[in-house]
């Protein structure tokens, strides 16, 4: 008998010929947050929660994303950064990109480690938990792009912000490779004291356009 047949057979034996009735799953937890979509309370909540992870948020009008991305890079890399050191997702809107920046292509992913910063869009932002979700679409880029450069800039638009986790999960496509980002990489492995910045980007900057 194959291992597959044997393990499945064991499960059937364990559960018995007449299986216990399956309990109803009551989903009476909150399906949505309290604040109306795109409203100021919802955006304020997102900003508060993202900053609580010691990430930086820069707010701007939708037309000012390009300038604000540059301001974010000034903060993350220090003034005088070279555009060639910044790599952006291939589908990032042209007016969001710093002039002269590197655009990700099909190079071996480890080469992205040579860049100082990356800029991506997001698919969804969850306000209550301060979570940004990248879904591998052209404007979010492949997973290595938001991982290897030490400084990550994510652009969030107001329509992408939801209240709670159930709304976020509902908007996502589980067949895509997803990365949920809540603050810079961190560890609590030494005396349970949180230290920001281990293997992932040590600096996270969020540009919120509304």
């Amino acid at each position: 008998m194959s291992a597959r047949e044997e393990v499945l057979g064991r499960i059937r034996t364990a559960l018995g010929a007449t299986r216990a009735a399956v309990p109803d799953v009551v989903r009476d937890y909150r399906q949505a947050g309290e604040h109306p979509a795109t409203g100021p309370e919802l955006l304020d909540l997102l900003v508060d929660r993202v900053e609580d992870y010691r990430a930086t948020v820069l707010r701007c009008a939708p037309a000012e994303v390009g300038a604000t991305v540059r301001a974010a890079l000034d903060q993350g890399l220090g003034a005088g950064w070279a555009a060639a050191d910044v790599v952006v997702a291939p589908g990032l809107p042209a007016d969001w990109r710093p002039e002269g920046c590197d655009v990700d292509d099909d190079r071996p992913p480890v080469q992205l480690a040579d860049r100082s910063a990356s800029v991506t869009a997001v698919a969804v932002a969850i306000a209550e938990t301060g979570t940004l979700v990248l879904d591998g679409s052209p404007d979010c880029g492949r997973r290595a792009l938001s991982l290897l450069p030490d400084c990550l800039v994510c652009v969030v638009t107001a329509d992408q912000v939801v209240g709670g986790v159930p709304e976020g999960i509902g908007r996502l496509d589980p067949l895509r490779p997803l990365t949920m980002v809540s603050g810079p990489s961190a560890t609590s492995d030494i005396e349970l004291q949180r230290v920001e910045g281990v293997h992932g980007p040590r600096t996270l900057l969020v540009v919120l356009a509304a």
Partner: peptide
């Protein structure tokens, strides 16, 4: 004890 852990990865 965090609202969300820094990284969650999913893949199919």
């Amino acid at each position: 004890g965090e609202r969300m852990n820094p990284y969650t990865s999913t893949w199919a």
